[in-house]
Design a protein around this nucleic acid. Sequence first.
DNA 1: CTGTTAGCGCATTCAC
DNA 2: GTGAATGCGCTAACAG
Lengths: 336, 336
Amino acid sequence: MSLTIKDVARLANVSIATVSRVLNRSKPVSPEIREKVMKVVDELGYNPNPVARTLIMKESMLVGVLISDVANTFISMFVRGIEKELFQHGYTTLLCNTNGDTEVELHYLNLLRDKYVDGVVLLTSAPKQEQIDFFDKNDIPVIFSSHTDKDGRFSSINIDDYQATYDATKYLIMLGHRSIAFFSGPMEYYQTVRRYNGYLQALDDHGIEYQEGWLFDKDYDLESGYKSGMELFARENRPTAVFCVSDMVAIGAIRAAEDSGLRVPEDVSIMGFDDIPIAGAYRPKITTVRQPVYELGSGSAQMLLKQIREKGTGSCESKVLPHEIIVRESCRALTD
Amino acid sequence: MSLTIKDVARLANVSIATVSRVLNRSKPVSPEIREKVMKVVDELGYNPNPVARTLIMKESMLVGVLISDVANTFISMFVRGIEKELFQHGYTTLLCNTNGDTEVELHYLNLLRDKYVDGVVLLTSAPKQEQIDFFDKNDIPVIFSSHTDKDGRFSSINIDDYQATYDATKYLIMLGHRSIAFFSGPMEYYQTVRRYNGYLQALDDHGIEYQEGWLFDKDYDLESGYKSGMELFARENRPTAVFCVSDMVAIGAIRAAEDSGLRVPEDVSIMGFDDIPIAGAYRPKITTVRQPVYELGSGSAQMLLKQIREKGTGSCESKVLPHEIIVRESCRALTD
DNA sequence: CTGTTAGCGCATTCAC
DNA sequence: GTGAATGCGCTAACAG
């Protein structure tokens, strides 16, 4: 069906080795022959079979990206960042959705290795032991995105979740709030834990005693925020502010507040996280912590590319991107 | 490094041909030998190299999914539908983001073919001539999602965009609206055109004359809706209702209305499309047309799988999934 | 510089 | 039923 290197060699009256050489610049070829070959290649519109190439080279120009559904809201943007960067360097992105299922993750990891992917980006939010083991066993470049392994033996790119939440909590405290609930995600994710710790530390640093019942650990989505909100706002003695681990949770919380007869921010202040496009358009506009999602994606790709080039060095780096408090309308100063 | 079929053959004292046979059930093998081989396979944890296999079989167990950024809001859900379905059948999803760039699309299509993908799902919203040509030239199973080629020579899965918009417009008319603006996406997308036609027809069928200046064709995102809204609501003689091609556009339009001192739905009714998760949580809750996004994804996968099995038959089917008007708060009845 | 040859890991035709 | 040999399309030693 398709053209092979043989066809080119025959029509150009050279050996297949020569064709391979001009195509890969692997060895010097005389200008005349090179040109002759290129002419045939162009006329035929020939391009080498990447599968055969992979079989020999053990590289595929493929990069696997594992995603789960956490923070699913910004996955799309994140992936675009990765994808664009990789594409510019001739790599293709193999996207794998794991739904956070360890078994599925492992399945994909093995599959990817068998396909000779040149690298992997993990956006699965909970670095499991199985993953660590896999990358210990297989020498495949990998970037942990938005989460790191405990020992920091692998490259990673993150924002400073601890500091970001610390800053957010501090902001609420500066506004005069002394009772602040924490609408969390699952504590299995280090990301969540780091945020929680930042929150606790900010409380502590400002002489606020953490209260039993301020923590709601459900998930990163709208429904979780709504449920936590309905639960919290039904209480007699409710906090004056709520920190949410995502904007979607914040939106759910705002809905719950309104359904409970509370106004935001007059009766309760609600802070989000992510700064998804809708955050600035919501009513009230959501005060939130901005993550540079696209940059996290493209940064992952850049780091991975570097690691692929330097494969074998065992080098490993960590990158932390800046966050930013975006002040809008959903949090107000307490002036009583 | 990795295990090969030779290792298995050696340890089981059989030829590689026999190993291949038990693994593929391609030819009968005596029970004793089969068992002996399987034992070695299990002990070694051997699995065949898919790349070598692809080189011979000309199939990869890979499916390419091309996406652009239109309706980017629901791509995530759509892809999950595809991915899950394919995964269950042993296929892996190769996701390619084209940004609607024809050149990039073509690049990917060629790459995918060279990787021997077993099929392709197109979610690029504008069936371009180049794409049609590609699939005419290359006999690769393909599903056009959310858009069809004009001639209907390829399989596709859609909702009935024409009817859905007709229904939505009719709903607004039934509410008493006689002047209805259309916040559109780019007219290069057939999807957009079909919706526009449904809108026009509904107007016509109910004796409403279409007015110059009711059409705003920008894009499917929030900003487009906002801009169109600011433009429209500044006018003296503004419509009482607006149909938007997506919920994000609707959200932008609602923002614009409020920034123009208009209340929704008291002063202007705004209707969305898609029913993204936020639509029901927005303030006001958005009246919209629901698309079964996940089902469009899994349906695409099912149709593709079927086509892969029946490859060569040249069979081609079209599937239309139901839409639904979701009545919420953003549109009100005119009672004057 | 260039051509010949030998694999990469596997499926499959042939002989037996 | 089973094994030896051939080749998928390509790269890389090896000679010349």
